[in-house]
Lab assay of single mutants.
Amino acid sequence: FHVTIHVGDITFHIHGVSEEEVKKLEELVRRGADWREIKKTIEEIEK
């Protein structure tokens, strides 16, 4: 999957994300995680 996440003024683009990881990111966004937490999760996914 290709994912784009907008957190305030920050936009993250992630490529090659599995469905499971998409759900993890959706959950973070849904519970209102700040951009640092989302960035950390994205960095883990990209490894």
Results as ranks from 00 to 15, higher is better:
A33D: 03
V17K: 02
T41F: 15
V7A: 08
L25D: 00
V17P: 04
V7Y: 14
I5W: 02
E20W: 11
G16D: 12
G8A: 07
E44P: 00
T4V: 12
R30A: 15
E37V: 05
V17H: 02
I10F: 14
H13N: 11
I42E: 00
V17Y: 12
F12W: 12
T11I: 13
G8S: 06
H13F: 12
E27L: 06
D34F: 02
E21N: 15
D9G: 12
G32P: 03
G32Y: 02
R36T: 14
V3S: 03
E20V: 08
E44D: 09
I45R: 01
E19Q: 11
E19A: 14
R31C: 10
L28Y: 03
E19I: 14
G16C: 11
I14K: 01
I14L: 12
R30L: 13
G8N: 08
K40V: 07
T11S: 10
E27S: 07
T4C: 05
I10S: 06
T4K: 06
D9K: 10
T11P: 03
I10D: 06
R30V: 09
I42D: 00
K24T: 10
I45Y: 08
L28T: 02
I42Y: 02
H13T: 11
E21K: 06
R36D: 15
S18T: 15
V7S: 07
G32W: 01
E44S: 05
E27I: 05
W35N: 02
E44L: 06
E21M: 14
T11M: 07
G8H: 05
K24V: 13
F12N: 00
E27H: 06
R31F: 06
S18W: 04
D9H: 12
V22N: 04
I5S: 00
I10W: 15
F12T: 02
I45G: 01
T4H: 08
K23A: 12
R36E: 15
H13W: 06
I38T: 01
D34M: 02
I45F: 12
I45K: 01
I38P: 00
V22M: 14
H13K: 09
G32K: 04
I10N: 08
L28C: 02
V17A: 11
R36V: 11
K23R: 13
T41L: 15
I5C: 02
W35E: 08
K47Q: 13
I42G: 00
V7Q: 04
K23D: 07
E27Q: 07
F1G: 09
I38V: 06
I38K: 00
T41P: 00
G16L: 11
G32M: 03
E44N: 04
L28K: 03
G32I: 01
E37R: 01
V3P: 01
K47G: 10
H2P: 06
H15L: 10
G32A: 04
E21G: 14
R31G: 13
D9Y: 09
K40P: 01
V29I: 10
V3L: 13
W35S: 03
L28G: 01
H13V: 13
D34A: 05
K39C: 11
F1L: 13
K39A: 11
E26A: 08
I10L: 12
K24Q: 11
G16P: 04
E21R: 04
E21T: 15
I45H: 03
E44W: 05
H13P: 01
R31L: 13
E19M: 12
E26N: 09
V29F: 08
H6L: 09
W35K: 02
E43V: 05
K39Q: 15
V3I: 12
I42K: 01
A33E: 04
V29S: 04
E27M: 07
H2W: 15
R30H: 12
I45E: 01
H15G: 09
K47H: 10
F1T: 08
K47T: 09
E27K: 06
V22L: 14
A33M: 03
E27A: 09
A33L: 03
I10C: 15
W35C: 07
F12P: 00
E37L: 05
E21D: 15
D9E: 12
E44T: 04
E20K: 10
K23G: 07
L25E: 00
I14F: 08
E20G: 08
F12H: 04
W35V: 07
I5Y: 03
V22R: 13
H6Q: 14
R31K: 13
V7P: 01
D34Q: 04
E20Y: 11
K24D: 04
L28F: 03
V29R: 03
V3Q: 03
V22A: 13
T4Q: 07
L25Q: 00
H15Y: 15
F12C: 03
T11H: 11
F1S: 10
E21P: 01
V7N: 06
V29Y: 05
R36N: 15
E46C: 12
T41W: 15
V7C: 14
I5P: 00
I45V: 03
V7M: 13
E46S: 10
E46H: 12
E19W: 15
K23H: 10
E26K: 09
T41A: 15
V3N: 03
K40Y: 07
